[in-house]
């Protein structure tokens, strides 16, 4: 089998365009997910009774059903109720709703793992619960959650490939269309896989840098060692 390099100039521009769309939907979907996650986490902590029940139902649903089915529900069920959204909108919304369920739990375990003496010291000085949360607890939470957050962000990027099934014109979709025209699947899947791999690897390194920055106040010895220990098992896994 010989790698047919003529594929690169022929389909390169189209693949690149798909890649940019992948970047775009992932970025917007991620922002949406981080926001929804915050909302769900807030609901769970602020209203321990009904809020936690609601939040848990949301979290359990999105974590225990396939992303593909969630996307089908968004894209195909809406029109039945007279709400029509484009594949792209359904895709971004899907990524946001799905990511939010995971981010909510990551935030929460981060907040809970900030040592309780931190809040106590602030309380003893007369600070209010709200300032304690925003000025003492949440800033430290970021440093603690960067590792599981990174895994989840990477998972989100990889899940975005599933959106090709509902015809979002992203990288995987463009790749499949090219294959249906040329049958050069070895070359095209290699290129597509490489682009995803490069994106994920770059993202992992970028986020590692962000983790180091967000824990710059800790000395080197304290910085990494048990960052994974405090997380609940579900939050640490790196998954596709």
């Amino acid at each position: 089998m010989i790698f047919d390099f003529s594929i690169v100039p022929r389909y390169g521009p189209a693949l690149l365009e798909g890649f940019l769309i992948t970047l775009f939907i992932c970025f917007i979907g991620l922002l949406l997910g981080l926001f929804i996650g915050g909302l769900i986490c807030w609901l769970k902590i602020r209203f321990p009774g009904w809020g936690a029940t609601l939040a848990n139902t949301y979290i359990e649903f999105f974590r225990n059903t396939p992303f593909l089915i969630q996307v089908f529900l968004l894209y195909y069920v809406g029109p039945v109720f007279g709400i029509s959204i484009s594949a792209m909108t359904a895709g971004i919304l899907g990524l946001g709703l799905y990511g939010g369920a995971y981010f909510a739990e990551i935030y929460r375990s981060g907040i809970l793992s900030v040592h309780k003496g931190q809040a106590e010291a602030a309380r003893a000085l007369g600070m209010g619960e709200k300032s304690i949360l925003y000025r003492i607890v949440i800033p430290q939470m970021w440093g603690l959650i960067m590792a599981p957050l990174t895994s989840q962000i990477i998972t989100l990027v990889k899940e975005s490939a599933i959106l090709s099934v509902i015809t979002v014109q992203e990288l995987t979709f463009v790749g499949q269309r090219a294959i249906s025209e040329t049958y050069n699947y070895v070359e095209i899947y290699t290129l597509v896989a490489f682009l995803y791999w490069a994106l994920v690897t770059a993202l992992a390194n970028l986020l590692k840098g962000l983790e180091n920055y967000s824990t710059r106040y800790l000395n080197v010895r304290e910085r990494s060692p048990n960052k994974l220990i405090f997380m609940k098992k579900q939050d640490v896994k790196l998954r596709s």
Partner: peptide, 12 residues
């Protein structure tokens, strides 16, 4: 004012 056994300084 209160001073704790574990200091509880804010590390960030």
């Amino acid at each position: 004012g209160m001073v704790f056994q574990q200091f509880n300084l804010w590390p960030h």
